[in-house]
Nucleic acid binder design. Structure first.
Lengths: 221, 221, 221, 221
DNA sequence: TATGAATGAGGATTCATTCAT
DNA sequence: TATGAATGAATCCTCATTCAT
């Protein structure tokens, strides 16, 4: 009899998992924020999706805005670090580095839920200046600078023609933005689909040719 | 009669015709939707900005969602028509056509308030499938097809190398998306700034070189 | 037929009465705040009691705190003015003036809902420093000063013995505080009851005798 | 080694006995209830202030209301007993007894945290009828009766003039209420300050004179 | 048509209370 | 006993929408 009781699991109303919680919550929040937008996401849904109660959210985040910031920050921190490391160490041709960066972006960000963050930032930057500045300072600027560095290295090495590195850097990233936004907004409604990796490779090929120095064909000019 | 009227009334020469109301309202709504996002925009603010009362909005639009759809539709209708006409008539090199399209985009969309619409669509597509489909059917698909057509014309004419026209078409538009989104989200927080036209021209140059036929044909240049 | 129509009132969902509203609301709020305390009063109840909807409250008051302040301020404004006028004009013996002030207090405050305000202030002063200061500056200080003035006039005129007017002024008001608080808190539970006017008159008699000049002058009375 | 432990322990000489817990908790609760009001006091703060955890409160008190009642009851029990004893034993003039009671009140209640209880009662009586009745039965009524007794003893002894002892009893206590409430609400915001003992002494003097039999001056009347 | 006062459903947030540890 | 993470009912407040004027 008593044994039967033990099998009749009293099913605890909740379990204590303090450490895991914040990540589970931000993961759920990221999903919903990306899907529905910040304002349209109910904290109750975030709670449900992360398997906790409404009140529990407030044990880890002061309020909705705070949760949002945590989602963005946390989603970006490790990708940023990784990409930085990647670039700093690399020794090789400038173009190979560009390829590595774009492929790395796809692997670590583009093909993961984190790819939803750009859309979030775009949508909410005006409402959250703090987030906008953070993103500019920690992601955009360093990212652009890295690309500028690569391009200028390529120019100095005679690998690339002389271009306005600053503006070209924007071009290098444009397709990633397109992909990230597309996948998290219109893609679900597009029956044809677009293959991100194909776009990236096509883009790389365009960059290779577009950045090639005039010299090769300089004689026939 | 008309003469007498014009002399008597010290009123502005063209009084706001009641027919103009809807456009004034959608214009105000576009501004606010782009600035703050759909959910975060209060109809009261739209009313104030367009100089009418809250109740008046409901004389022209059934509800907030309806207003939103009108904003998007209306913002896109004439640009779409113009670009179509542009392409259909044009006779000239494929690349010149690309240049014309991108410059035209900047003039008619990129540098106007309408440039905020892509951001709106990205942010709200998931919440408004109808809008998403409309945008896909009326803007994205026709736009891509037009570009695909241009590219394939160029390939057939030996002006461009042979590429996956579908995916390259995405690349052609990517920088416009970048610019449109950037200007309506992060640009206000970026002290450095980015010059859209410079980016577009740099992009065109990259396209010219990147699409140029294989260097085997470099001597025949 | 028409008569029947008039009886078949379509019963409008609400009526427009912009001007009357604020007072109706503060009156209801005063009642409930006094009865249940600030924190324990639900705005929904205030709304119901004043015959409006929850949202309507926010047309007139920014939030609960604002409503609270309005209740206090509004409840005090006219009594303050009246008492001031009363004292300023009066010409007569100091004691008669004291009597007039205390009786006036009973008529205009003590026996009205406004008598609940002292209790409210006491209970919430610490939570609303602004209100505390307002009450001190606009009610307590002027009130005490008025009493001090009367007492000192009486002393100068030989009508009162020489006392510490400042501290005696507190004593003059103490019974009104007792009455105001008692009636709005314990009175409903006390079967015996206490008659405010009796207490006031007994108090006046004590004041008359307690303030009478030293008995040296008893013979000349 | 172990021996050294016993000597090593730099612990306080008398560790907080678990029996002391409830008192520590009610003391903390009294402070906070008086400061912020019942509803506005978070049990978490009571817990923190009394150095225990939130859950521990529930080992000693069934719930917040229970804690509140304990605070009131406990705060009043010993003062009541003391004052009773004081009065019962006393042999002396009625006025001296009044003086003793009021001075005793100041020493044992007025100048201690317990002085906050009247404010609490006033503020919450309507919400806690049980408390109201308890306070009426155990504090107000006995207190008034005691004063009534003293006054009537004085009258019988020819020490006091003939007054309505019941209502005058209220007057005797009024200044204590004023002081108790003042100190726990407006005093912190009043730069001038009021000296409770001065008020009490002034009050006693007013009582002495106000209650004096007509006889002294009866001849000159 | 045009207005804006009034409505009330919806969602963020708080905090007394429970309970696994 | 003691803890504090977890819960969810309760309440403030917002704002799309309605409708008397």
């Amino acid at each position: 009899m008593m044994a039967s009781q033990s099998t009749a699991k009293p099913e605890p109303r909740w379990v204590r998992r303090k450490d895991a919680r914040p990540e589970e919550i931000t993961a759920a929040a990221l999903t919903l924020f990306v899907q529905r937008g910040y304002a349209n996401t109910r904290l109750e849904d975030v709670a449900r999706l992360s398997g906790v109660s409404k009140g529990t959210l407030y044990l880890y985040f002061a309020n909705k805005e705070d949760l949002f910031k945590a989602v963005v920050r946390e989603g970006l921190v490790s990708p940023i670090a990784e990409v930085r490391g990647l670039i700093d160490q690399y020794e090789g041709s400038a173009f190979d580095l560009l390829r590595m960066v774009l492929h790395g972006w796809w692997q670590r960000i583009g093909s993961t839920p984190v790819s939803g963050i750009p859309k979030l930032i775009l949508a909410e930057a005006r409402n959250f200046p703090e987030i906008a500045k953070f993103y500019l300072d920690e992601v955009v600027r360093p990212g652009l600078e890295a690309i500028v560095g690569i391009i200028e290295r390529g120019i100095r090495a005679g690998e690339f023609r002389s271009v306005d590195s600053r503006h070209v850097a924007h071009l290098v990233f444009a397709p990633t933005l397109l992909i990230a936004c597309w996948c998290n907004s219109l893609a679900p409604f597009d029956p044809q689909g677009m293959e991100p990796l194909r776009v990236i490779d096509e883009h790389l090929e365009m960059l290779r040719r577009g950045l090639a120095p005039e010299s090769t064909s300089s004689q026939d000019r």
